[in-house]
């Protein structure tokens, strides 16, 4: 399965639209029980994980059979203004499009397509940065 974003650099402004396509391959229709697509942010780091789903779609078996697996399917949503992607010392905030397949034998397959959420109008101004990333790229003293 694969998820492709509409922007190659994977950088999106807060408050703007995200478009993506997804496709499931090498899995038969009979073995699928449901598909979930979500746009979400989650935290990484020392603390317990926080997770917030911004956009969510679920396709049940019947609907999957109706549209089939041969074609690409599209997804679009309006992103919120916050929280922006962040790479701190104790906390990292990551955005992604997550696809979860539920197989009939009970197994689940998960794939994440990460992207960055940056400040509104920053791409247009040429000032788009992920806070904390510049610290990572700084050479060690």
């Amino acid at each position: 399965m694969s998820v492709s974003l509409c922007r190659e650099d994977g950088i999106y402004e807060g408050g703007k639209e995200l478009s993506a396509t997804w496709r499931v391959s090498r899995v038969t229709l009979d073995s699928l029980s449901a598909i979930e697509i979500s746009v979400l942010w989650y935290s990484e780091g020392k603390g317990d994980t926080d997770l917030h789903v911004h956009h969510f779609e679920r396709y049940e078996e019947e609907r999957i059979r109706r549209f089939g697996l041969a074609d690409k399917h599209s997804l679009s949503c309006l992103l919120p203004a916050t929280p922006l992607s962040y790479h701190g010392r104790l906390i990292r905030l990551r955005w992604c499009v997550r696809m979860r397949l539920f197989l009939t034998d009970g197994r689940e397959i998960v794939a994440d397509q990460p992207f960055y959420l940056v400040a509104p109008q920053s791409i247009h101004n040429g000032s788009a940065i992920v806070v904390g990333d510049e610290r990572r790229s700084r050479p060690s003293q």
């Binding site: 935290s43 926080d50 929280p83 701190g88 906390i91 940065i129 806070v131 904390g132």
Partner: peptide, 15 residues
């Protein structure tokens, strides 16, 4: 500075 994180509050993490 322009490259700082905004205030953020979640259940287990905060800035």
């Amino acid at each position: 500075p322009s490259n700082v994180m905004h205030s953020f509050v979640a259940s287990h993490n905060a800035v």
